[in-house]
Amino acid sequence: MAMDETDLAARHATKMAKIKAARDRMMATKEGEKGLIIVHTGAGKGKSSSGFGMIMRCIAHGFPSAVVQFIKGAWDTGERRLIETHFPHLCQFHAMGEGFTWETQDRERDIAAARAGWEKAKAMILNPELRMVLLDEINIALRYDYLDIAEVVAFLRDEKPPLTHVVLTGRNAKDELIEIADLVTEMSLIKHPFRAGIKAQPGVEF
Protein backbone atom coordinates (compact mmCIF):
# COMPACT_ATOMS: atom_id res chain seq x y z
CA MET A 1 0.00 0.00 0.00
CA ALA A 2 2.86 2.35 0.86
CA MET A 3 4.41 1.78 -2.58
CA ASP A 4 1.07 2.54 -4.23
CA GLU A 5 0.77 5.84 -2.36
CA THR A 6 4.35 6.72 -3.24
CA ASP A 7 3.76 5.93 -6.89
CA LEU A 8 0.54 7.98 -6.89
CA ALA A 9 2.33 10.96 -5.35
CA ALA A 10 5.14 10.72 -7.90
CA ARG A 11 2.70 10.55 -10.81
CA HIS A 12 0.80 13.53 -9.43
CA ALA A 13 4.00 15.55 -9.07
CA THR A 14 5.04 14.73 -12.65
CA LYS A 15 1.62 15.66 -14.00
CA MET A 16 1.55 18.97 -12.10
CA ALA A 17 5.08 19.81 -13.27
CA LYS A 18 4.00 19.36 -16.89
CA ILE A 19 0.91 21.52 -16.33
CA LYS A 20 3.02 24.23 -14.67
CA ALA A 21 5.54 24.22 -17.52
CA ALA A 22 2.74 24.58 -20.09
CA ARG A 23 1.14 27.32 -18.01
CA ASP A 24 4.43 29.18 -17.68
CA ARG A 25 4.95 29.05 -21.46
CA MET A 26 1.46 30.41 -22.03
CA MET A 27 1.86 33.19 -19.45
CA ALA A 28 5.16 34.25 -21.01
CA THR A 29 3.23 35.30 -24.11
CA LYS A 30 0.80 37.48 -22.14
CA GLU A 31 2.43 40.86 -21.60
CA GLY A 32 -0.05 43.49 -22.72
CA GLU A 33 -2.62 45.34 -20.65
CA LYS A 34 -5.79 47.04 -21.82
CA GLY A 35 -8.99 48.40 -20.40
CA LEU A 36 -11.56 45.65 -20.73
CA ILE A 37 -15.23 45.76 -21.65
CA ILE A 38 -16.75 43.18 -19.30
CA VAL A 39 -20.32 41.89 -19.52
CA HIS A 40 -22.13 39.90 -16.82
CA THR A 41 -25.47 38.64 -18.09
CA GLY A 42 -27.84 35.67 -17.90
CA ALA A 43 -30.86 34.62 -15.85
CA GLY A 44 -28.86 33.45 -12.86
CA LYS A 45 -28.06 35.40 -9.71
CA GLY A 46 -24.65 37.02 -9.30
CA LYS A 47 -24.28 39.55 -12.10
CA SER A 48 -24.26 42.69 -9.96
CA SER A 49 -22.53 40.83 -7.13
CA SER A 50 -19.65 39.98 -9.44
CA GLY A 51 -19.45 43.56 -10.70
CA PHE A 52 -19.32 44.92 -7.17
CA GLY A 53 -16.71 42.31 -6.30
CA MET A 54 -14.50 43.83 -9.00
CA ILE A 55 -15.13 47.29 -7.57
CA MET A 56 -14.06 46.01 -4.14
CA ARG A 57 -10.86 44.69 -5.69
CA CYS A 58 -10.14 48.13 -7.18
CA ILE A 59 -10.78 49.74 -3.80
CA ALA A 60 -8.45 47.24 -2.11
CA HIS A 61 -5.70 48.13 -4.60
CA GLY A 62 -6.33 51.84 -4.10
CA PHE A 63 -7.62 52.30 -7.66
CA PRO A 64 -10.23 55.06 -8.04
CA SER A 65 -13.47 53.73 -9.52
CA ALA A 66 -17.13 54.59 -9.99
CA VAL A 67 -20.56 52.95 -10.00
CA VAL A 68 -23.47 54.18 -12.08
CA GLN A 69 -26.56 52.24 -11.08
CA PHE A 70 -29.43 51.99 -13.54
CA ILE A 71 -33.00 50.76 -12.85
CA LYS A 72 -32.69 49.77 -9.17
CA GLY A 73 -30.91 52.95 -8.15
CA ALA A 74 -33.58 53.79 -5.57
CA TRP A 75 -32.77 50.68 -3.53
CA ASP A 76 -30.95 50.89 -0.19
CA THR A 77 -28.40 48.16 -0.91
CA GLY A 78 -25.55 46.81 1.19
CA GLU A 79 -22.96 47.63 -1.46
CA ARG A 80 -24.18 51.21 -1.70
CA ARG A 81 -24.05 51.64 2.09
CA LEU A 82 -20.55 50.18 2.25
CA ILE A 83 -19.11 52.30 -0.55
CA GLU A 84 -20.75 55.58 0.45
CA THR A 85 -19.95 55.11 4.15
CA HIS A 86 -16.40 53.79 4.01
CA PHE A 87 -14.89 54.38 0.56
CA PRO A 88 -16.30 57.58 -0.97
CA HIS A 89 -12.72 58.80 -1.57
CA LEU A 90 -12.03 55.79 -3.80
CA CYS A 91 -15.38 55.05 -5.42
CA GLN A 92 -18.05 57.42 -6.65
CA PHE A 93 -21.57 55.99 -6.40
CA HIS A 94 -24.29 57.40 -8.63
CA ALA A 95 -27.75 55.86 -8.18
CA MET A 96 -29.64 57.02 -11.25
CA GLY A 97 -32.63 54.67 -11.51
CA GLU A 98 -36.01 54.91 -9.80
CA GLY A 99 -36.84 51.22 -9.48
CA PHE A 100 -37.89 48.42 -11.78
CA THR A 101 -40.14 49.22 -14.72
CA TRP A 102 -43.18 47.55 -13.16
CA GLU A 103 -42.79 49.85 -10.14
CA THR A 104 -42.53 53.17 -11.98
CA GLN A 105 -45.08 52.21 -14.69
CA ASP A 106 -43.99 55.30 -16.58
CA ARG A 107 -41.95 54.69 -19.72
CA GLU A 108 -41.03 58.33 -20.26
CA ARG A 109 -39.73 58.63 -16.72
CA ASP A 110 -37.75 55.43 -17.14
CA ILE A 111 -36.23 56.69 -20.38
CA ALA A 112 -35.32 60.01 -18.79
CA ALA A 113 -33.65 58.23 -15.85
CA ALA A 114 -31.75 55.92 -18.20
CA ARG A 115 -30.55 58.85 -20.31
CA ALA A 116 -29.37 60.71 -17.22
CA GLY A 117 -27.58 57.55 -16.11
CA TRP A 118 -25.88 57.17 -19.48
CA GLU A 119 -24.70 60.79 -19.48
CA LYS A 120 -23.23 60.25 -16.03
CA ALA A 121 -21.68 56.96 -17.19
CA LYS A 122 -19.96 58.65 -20.13
CA ALA A 123 -18.52 61.31 -17.85
CA MET A 124 -17.19 58.67 -15.46
CA ILE A 125 -15.68 56.56 -18.25
CA LEU A 126 -13.92 59.58 -19.74
CA ASN A 127 -12.50 60.59 -16.35
CA PRO A 128 -8.78 59.69 -16.66
CA GLU A 129 -8.45 59.22 -12.89
CA LEU A 130 -10.84 56.26 -12.76
CA ARG A 131 -9.58 52.72 -13.32
CA MET A 132 -12.97 50.96 -13.46
CA VAL A 133 -16.59 52.01 -14.02
CA LEU A 134 -19.45 49.66 -13.19
CA LEU A 135 -22.69 50.22 -15.13
CA ASP A 136 -25.00 48.17 -12.97
CA GLU A 137 -28.17 46.88 -14.70
CA ILE A 138 -27.56 48.91 -17.85
CA ASN A 139 -28.51 45.82 -19.88
CA ILE A 140 -32.08 46.20 -18.63
CA ALA A 141 -32.22 49.76 -19.95
CA LEU A 142 -30.81 48.54 -23.26
CA ARG A 143 -33.24 45.62 -23.41
CA TYR A 144 -36.24 47.96 -23.19
CA ASP A 145 -34.65 50.39 -25.65
CA TYR A 146 -34.45 53.15 -23.08
CA LEU A 147 -30.96 53.66 -24.50
CA ASP A 148 -29.75 53.28 -28.07
CA ILE A 149 -27.52 50.21 -28.25
CA ALA A 150 -25.71 51.60 -31.30
CA GLU A 151 -24.79 54.75 -29.36
CA VAL A 152 -23.57 52.79 -26.34
CA VAL A 153 -21.51 50.40 -28.46
CA ALA A 154 -19.97 53.21 -30.51
CA PHE A 155 -18.96 55.10 -27.38
CA LEU A 156 -17.38 52.07 -25.71
CA ARG A 157 -15.59 51.08 -28.91
CA ASP A 158 -14.38 54.50 -30.00
CA GLU A 159 -14.17 56.78 -26.96
CA LYS A 160 -13.40 54.64 -23.92
CA PRO A 161 -9.86 55.39 -22.72
CA PRO A 162 -7.46 52.52 -23.50
CA LEU A 163 -6.79 51.49 -19.88
CA THR A 164 -10.26 52.02 -18.37
CA HIS A 165 -12.26 48.90 -17.48
CA VAL A 166 -16.03 49.09 -17.95
CA VAL A 167 -18.32 46.45 -16.43
CA LEU A 168 -21.91 46.15 -17.68
CA THR A 169 -24.43 43.96 -15.86
CA GLY A 170 -28.00 42.81 -16.34
CA ARG A 171 -30.00 40.13 -18.09
CA ASN A 172 -30.40 39.84 -21.84
CA ALA A 173 -27.22 41.59 -22.96
CA LYS A 174 -27.65 42.55 -26.57
CA ASP A 175 -25.63 40.80 -29.26
CA GLU A 176 -24.00 44.05 -30.34
CA LEU A 177 -22.59 44.55 -26.84
CA ILE A 178 -21.41 40.96 -26.55
CA GLU A 179 -19.65 41.33 -29.90
CA ILE A 180 -17.38 44.19 -28.74
CA ALA A 181 -16.83 42.88 -25.20
CA ASP A 182 -13.51 41.39 -24.11
CA LEU A 183 -14.99 39.25 -21.35
CA VAL A 184 -18.55 37.90 -21.24
CA THR A 185 -19.96 35.70 -18.49
CA GLU A 186 -23.46 34.24 -18.56
CA MET A 187 -24.94 33.32 -15.19
CA SER A 188 -27.15 30.23 -15.48
CA LEU A 189 -30.16 29.75 -13.22
CA ILE A 190 -30.30 26.26 -11.72
CA LYS A 191 -32.18 26.88 -8.45
CA HIS A 192 -33.45 30.05 -6.79
CA PRO A 193 -35.20 30.39 -3.41
CA PHE A 194 -37.75 32.86 -4.86
CA ARG A 195 -39.39 29.94 -6.64
CA ALA A 196 -39.85 28.26 -3.26
CA GLY A 197 -41.59 31.31 -1.81
CA ILE A 198 -38.55 32.91 -0.17
CA LYS A 199 -38.38 36.67 -0.54
CA ALA A 200 -35.24 38.69 -1.34
CA GLN A 201 -33.11 39.04 1.78
CA PRO A 202 -30.50 41.61 2.83
CA GLY A 203 -26.98 40.28 2.57
CA VAL A 204 -27.97 37.84 -0.16
CA GLU A 205 -29.97 39.85 -2.69
CA PHE A 206 -29.18 43.44 -1.74
Results as ranks from 00 to 15, higher is better:
I55L: 00
R25W: 08
K174S: 11
M124K: 05
D145C: 09
A2N: 13
G53D: 13
I138H: 01
V167Q: 06
Y144T: 05
V166M: 07
V68H: 00
P193C: 13
L147K: 04
L126V: 04
H192M: 08
K47G: 06
S188Y: 11
G46T: 02
A9T: 13
D182I: 12
L142H: 00
L36V: 02
A113D: 00
L183V: 15
G51Y: 02
K199P: 06
D24I: 12
I125E: 01
L156G: 00
T6L: 15
D158F: 08
G42D: 08
G53T: 09
N139S: 01
A112P: 00
G78Y: 06
D24Q: 14
R143I: 00
K160N: 01
A154P: 03
D7M: 14
A196H: 13
V67C: 01
M54P: 05
R195H: 15
E84G: 06
W75L: 13
A74W: 09
A21Q: 12
G53C: 09
I178R: 15
P128V: 02
M26N: 10
F155P: 05
G62R: 08
V167F: 01
D106G: 02
A28Y: 07
R25L: 14
H86P: 02
L82A: 13
K47A: 05
K191Y: 10
E84S: 12
M54C: 05
H12Q: 14
T104K: 07
G42Y: 09
K18D: 09
K34Q: 15
I190M: 14
V184P: 03
G53V: 07
E103F: 04
A95S: 15
E33Q: 14
P193Q: 09
T169Y: 09
M16W: 03
D175N: 13
L142F: 03
E179I: 11
L126I: 05
I37F: 02
C91E: 03
G35C: 12
N139C: 09
G53W: 12
R25M: 11
A66K: 01
I125P: 00
A60M: 08
I55W: 00
H89F: 11
F93G: 05
M3H: 14
H89R: 10
K72E: 07
A21F: 10
L142T: 05
T101E: 11
L177I: 13
P128S: 03
Y144Q: 05
Q201S: 12
T169S: 14
E151F: 00
H89A: 13
P128C: 04
E33A: 14
A28F: 06
L147T: 04
A123K: 06
A181V: 11
T169F: 12
F70G: 02
I190P: 02
S188C: 08
R80Y: 09
A121R: 03
F194L: 11
I71S: 00
A10K: 12
L126C: 02
E98P: 00
A196N: 13
L135Y: 02
T6R: 15
D7I: 15
T185I: 08
V152A: 01
L183S: 14
V184E: 02
V133D: 03
K199M: 12
C91L: 06
L163S: 12
V39M: 09
T6H: 14
V39F: 06
D145I: 04
V167R: 07
D148S: 08
N139Y: 07
G99T: 00
I71N: 01
G46V: 07
G197D: 10
I19D: 05
